[in-house]
Design a protein around this nucleic acid. Structure first.
Lengths: 226, 226
DNA sequence: TTCTTTTGTTACAGAAATATTACAATTTAA
DNA sequence: TTAAATTGTAATATTTCTGTAACAAAAGAA
């Protein structure tokens, strides 16, 4: 994690908090308290991503954004907008003006961090850790590939997400409900038994003969990666 | 134990009592005496869990709950509802509105504490202590594993719960009825002698040769871990 | 000792949880 | 549009777990 992140935000306390945490994760951070200064600082700093407040004392976030998009050097700079409003209308306006993602204040740092990584993953994959590795199993989030013991394995979309989920917390046992909540799109109703079937399919795919079983069944509790 | 807990409850005495005890356990606690203020306070405080009274002077607990679930930042905030009513109907309503657990007033602090930890264990496992250790015995609640003297031991679900129960209060003697109440799912009727059989199974599993017996029989009283 | 009460042990049938399979419906790719 | 891949479910098979009853053993009481 060696990317550079620029913050334009007028509340110094937010900058401080975010900067501290991002630096802890290995990002290099610079910031500015208003739009005009921000635009200048940006050009010097050449960040990989910009966190941009919606409401600024001089220019609005959208103005800053439009300004940036005009500049050939920053046409593709990923921008995450910070906004206190939750209105749908604003979100649409923001996306039209070329914002990559949104986050509504107050936000937890975990959420911010997740969004930053998701955006960077698309724009600048090298900056972010994209491989999930567990023993001889490797999952590449960028190329959407899975390897066991160097050999590539074909997985369907659901099995891929399922494995990705297990890999974010290997060894931990998850109940069927937890799996359902996280791996399946929201508000989708599927039988919890359906998971058994997907577990089976995943097992069939990732298990190699002479290699140990990777998915543990914990009766009455769920499954885990081991 | 470093999590943050927010309480919305109109009886100041309850808040005081709960807050005192939770802080003793290392939680950071904030509170509010009514629903509207609570919703605001909540957003500033960013708790890991909310204790929510069912009856509030302004909004009902359910309203507060629904309100919270609408907010993207708090959609997944674990909520434990405090209620004086015991009616089944209410429980169902509450669960539909997205509550994670229930507790009926009056409650003992021990019960509350246990439920809080159980809920946190699911949502935010890092906050809660997850390993139960007694001498050379270790039970890992996250991975659902048990070790004696570093060596793993296979246990069935009931034996696991039974051991987990003993480990939360080693040395203390429990009657068969107490064990039944806590270890078995509610409203299940099993012979109290059945426990003897499970004790035997547990003993067989966790006893290693040359190592001392871990479960003590207290004639006419029950069993304990020693 | 002898009787009474409590606990230990064993075996087993039924229950519960999981695994596996097949299939129809849907989505995606060709 | 057709063919192939993917998904969810239901039905069935298999495995593992549970509770109970029956008898044995142990501990107290008389």
């Amino acid at each position: 994690m060696k990317g550079k992140i620029f913050i334009i935000e007028d509340e110094a306390s937010i900058i401080q908090l975010v900067q501290l945490n991002l630096e802890k994760e290995g990002f290099i951070v610079a910031s500015s308290l208003n739009g005009n200064e921000g635009l200048k600082g940006l050009k010097k700093f050449e960040p990989n991503l910009l966190l941009l407040d919606w409401m600024l004392p001089d220019l609005s976030g959208i103005d800053v954004c439009k300004n940036i998009r005009k500049d050939n050097n920053f046409k593709n700079l990923p921008i995450i907008m910070l906004t206190a409003k939750g209105e749908e209308e604003d979100k649409i306006k923001g996306l039209e003006s070329g914002v990559d993602d949104y986050i509504t204040k107050p936000f937890s740092f975990n959420e911010l961090s997740a969004r930053i990584k998701a955006v960077l993953r698309r724009s600048d994959p090298n900056i972010v850790a994209n491989d999930l590795i567990f023993e001889d199993l490797k999952l590449d989030r960028i190329e959407k590939r899975v390897f066991r013991d160097e050999k590539e394995i074909q997985l369907g979309p659901t099995e891929f997400r399922l494995l990705e989920f297990f890999l974010t917390n290997p060894k931990r046992v998850y109940s069927r409900d937890q799996i359902l909540e996280t791996v399946w799109p929201n508000n989708v109703n599927v039988e919890s038994r359906t998971i058994d079937v997907h577990i089976r399919r995943l097992r069939q795919s990732i298990n190699i003969k002479d290699k140990k079983e990777l998915i543990r069944t914990v009766r009455s509790s769920g499954y885990s990666l081991v």
